[in-house]
Amino acid sequence: MRTVGVEEELLVVDPETGQALALAAAVVALDGRDDGAGAPGGTLEGELQLQQVEVDTHPQTDLSALADDVVAARARAAEAAGRVGAQIAALATSPLPTTPRTTPAARYLTMAERFGLTESEQLTCGLHVHVGVESDDEGVAALDRIRVWLPTLIALSVNSPFWSGVDSGYGSFRSQLWNRWPTAGPLELLGSADAYHRLVAEHLATDVPLDAGMLYFDARLSAQYPTVEVRVADVCLLAQDTVLVAALCRALVETAVRDWRDGRPPDDVPTALLRLASWRAGRSGLDENLVDPGTWRPRRASEVVASLVEHVRPALADSGDLDEVQDGVADLLHRGPGAVRQRTVLHRGALSGDVTMADVVRDAVEQTARPV
């Protein structure tokens, strides 16, 4: 069975005001754990901005083990943050106005100089899912075939409705901010590992991205591990939704590789249409229509999600994940992703006049710590 692991970026916040705090370096320093040099997973690290940290899990084949890892990683970050008087929130953007502070590492400072406001305003938190593959050719075969379904993963994960203290109108405003990077977005069809590596070399030859780590494709071959890395999702408010997105990513990769081995070609969909589908997903999440990857016409979000589950049903059944994914999807469609809860908390309070954006953050801190 394919392994799956996740990386989650999390906000460091003030427990009273809800303001994002530039304390990531202190949080990481106070963690003090060594989970095995060079081994994948089990780390707590700084990120681009000092108001965020990143945690990751070990590669797992069992979803319950992955869930335990996600909950433990969040608790680990919260424990370290608590030692400096802060808390951890799984929010893809800060609901409150904040001024991001770049982590003073050479690479990040060079990014700040080269990319200006794109970097200095880039306080966003994503979810990255790593799915094991046996070779680069297998990985590129998966990239070619999962690309049409990645907008649906955005819709399932939207968790960034607020920006600088106001409602952005988007379920995932993070996706709007993220796509300001020149290398972000969907890949065209590639056909082979050689074509992928040529594309990487061509990108780097332009001297626009600093390095391969800045190739922010929606999904890519990991430069560190033998995995396909799916990068489109907002960090999920609830750990159980993180696990759900991870399970769907693994099933998408497995389904894609099976189709490749059976000689079924990928859908030859223009990248421009994928950008439209991603915008639609980030705008409304599961609340309205999505662009159906079968017809490229509007269709109810719940029906598109059902088509995704049906597309990967054999892979889910073979991994023993079908019932859990079906239950998780039904629950998510019923209550909505993180953006829905954030807006609900604020709007309910608006009726009584005693709830602010700080309360949205405090609620997110509680939801972040919930077990699966």
Rank of each mutant, 00 (worst) to 15 (best):
G282R: 03
D35G: 15
T99A: 07
A247H: 10
Q51F: 02
A24F: 09
G185F: 01
D35N: 14
Q52V: 12
T99I: 02
P97Y: 07
D259T: 00
M214G: 10
A29F: 05
G294K: 04
A142W: 06
A141P: 01
L189I: 12
A105L: 15
R174G: 02
R180K: 10
E310M: 13
Y216T: 03
Y170N: 03
R280K: 14
R231I: 10
L290P: 01
D287Q: 14
V243P: 10
Q367L: 12
A247Y: 09
L274F: 04
A155G: 03
T99S: 04
D259V: 00
D68I: 04
V325L: 15
L244E: 08
A72S: 14
G336L: 10
V55F: 12
D144Q: 05
G46R: 14
A239N: 15
S307E: 14
S192E: 00
V291D: 08
T103A: 10
H334Q: 15
R33P: 00
V340S: 10
A26N: 03
V355D: 05
A24V: 11
Q51C: 01
S94M: 08
S222Q: 08
P59I: 02
A25K: 14
P104L: 14
H334F: 14
H311G: 01
M111K: 04
H128G: 08
L187A: 05
V53N: 03
G213L: 09
D262G: 13
V305W: 06
D35Q: 12
M357L: 15
A315H: 05
G32Q: 05
N159W: 07
A301C: 04
V133I: 14
G32I: 03
R341Y: 08
T255P: 02
H58Q: 13
Q122A: 14
Q60L: 11
D321C: 11
V230G: 04
T99H: 03
M111P: 01
A25F: 08
V355C: 12
A75N: 07
D287E: 15
D267F: 00
C125H: 05
V53A: 04
T3Q: 13
R114T: 07
D68Q: 13
P226L: 08
V365E: 07
R76M: 09
G338F: 07
W296A: 09
L204V: 05
T124H: 01
R114I: 00
A246H: 07
A301M: 06
L23W: 13
L316V: 09
F173D: 00
S352A: 15
D211W: 06
V257H: 09
L316S: 04
T344H: 12
A219R: 03
C249W: 12
V235A: 09
L273R: 14
C249M: 11
A81R: 10
E324V: 14
E138D: 15
E303Y: 03
E134R: 14
D331E: 15
G338S: 10
S284M: 04
E9H: 11
P15S: 09
L30M: 05
A65W: 11
H334K: 15
A219T: 05
V245G: 05
G132W: 07
V304Q: 05
L11G: 03
D327F: 13
A315K: 04
T43E: 12
G282E: 03
A281E: 06
D363P: 04
A315Q: 06
E310G: 13
P104C: 13
R145H: 07
